[in-house]
C-alpha cells in the first residue's frame, strides 16, 4: 500500500478524540483502511487520549457495577466478525450501504457524473461521486473543509494527482476542478461541512447531548 496523500495532524487528532462530524468520520475511517501511515498517526493520537483518560479523576461506579457487567457479558455472545469481502468500497462505507458498489443508488448530475448521498445524523454531508474517465467534476464551491478520498481510478487537480487511498484535504481557499484520469472511471467519497461552517457546527451538535 503506497498512499501518497495522508491525514494531517489536525484531522488525525480530531478522529482520535472523536471530535469530527459523522460524515468526516466515514471518510477518515475509509482512508485508514487503506493507509497504514495514517492509521499509525491516528493510533499515536489515541495513545495521547489514553493518557488524558488515565489522568482523569476516578469516579466510582455503582456498587453492583462489576456484577452487572459480568451479567451483561454472560447474556451476550462474543461476536467474531470476519473481515468482509474486499471490494472497491472499504468496509466502513460498505457498513453504511449494506454492501459494495452494487448497493449504491446513483443519481445523475449530468455529463455522466453521478453522486449518491450517504445519510448521516448531522449536517456535514458525505457523498460518493462517480466521474467518467477524462471528465471533470462539476464546479463545486465548498465554504468549509472538503475531504475527498479516491476509491477507484484517479483524478488530478491544481494540487496533484490522487489515486486509490489518497486523501485530498481542501480548505475554502482552494479552488479546484478535479479531472478523472483517462484510463479509468473515478469513484471517490467526499465529505463537506456545508452548509454550515465546521466551527459553528460542532458545539451546536453537542448541545443537546453534552449540555454545553
Amino acid at each position: 500500500m503506497t498512499v501518497k496523500h495522508v491525514l494531517n495532524d489536525q484531522l488525525a487528532m480530531g478522529y482520535a478524540a472523536g471530535a469530527l462530524p459523522e460524515a468526516f468520520d466515514i471518510v477518515v475511517a475509509a482512508h485508514l483502511s487503506l493507509s497504514d501511515e495514517s492509521r499509525a498517526l491516528v493510533s499515536s493520537y489515541e495513545a495521547v487520549g489514553a493518557c488524558v483518560m488515565e489522568e482523569c479523576d476516578s469516579v466510582e461506579l455503582k456498587s453492583d457495577a462489576f456484577a452487572a457487567t459480568l451479567g451483561r457479558i454472560k447474556s451476550s455472545d462474543t461476536v467474531i466478525e470476519k473481515p468482509g469481502p474486499k471490494g472497491v468500497l472499504p468496509e466502513p462505507i460498505q457498513k453504511y450501504l449494506g454492501g459494495d458498489l452494487e448497493k449504491v443508488k446513483w443519481k445523475s448530475l449530468g455529463g455522466g457524473v453521478k453522486q449518491a448521498i450517504i445519510p448521516t445524523n448531522d449536517t456535514a454531508q458525505a457523498r460518493l461521486l462517480f466521474i467518467p474517465a477524462g471528465q471533470s467534476v462539476p464546479d463545486h464551491g465548498h465554504r468549509g473543509m472538503e475531504l475527498t478520498l479516491v476509491l477507484q481510478g484517479s483524478f488530478a487537480d491544481e494540487v496533484d494527482e490522487f489515486a486509490r487511498g489518497d486523501l485530498e484535504i481542501a480548505n475554502e481557499d482552494l479552488n479546484h476542478q478535479p479531472i478523472a484520469s483517462m484510463d479509468a472511471d473515478c469513484i471517490c467519497i467526499a465529505a463537506t461541512d456545508a452548509p454550515l461552517r465546521f466551527n459553528s457546527l460542532l458545539p451546536r451538535l453537542l448541545q443537546p447531548f453534552f449540555k454545553i
Binding site: 489536525q10 471530535a19 473543509m145 457546527l201 458545539p203
Partner: peptide
Amino acid sequence: AYFGDLTHSELAQETGLPLGTIKSRI
C-alpha cells in the same frame, strides 16, 4: 480536545507532543 470541548478548527496543528517515535513503532 479529548473532552470534546474544542471545535475542529480549534484543534491544534501542533500539540508540542513528541509523537514521532511512537508513530514509527506502530
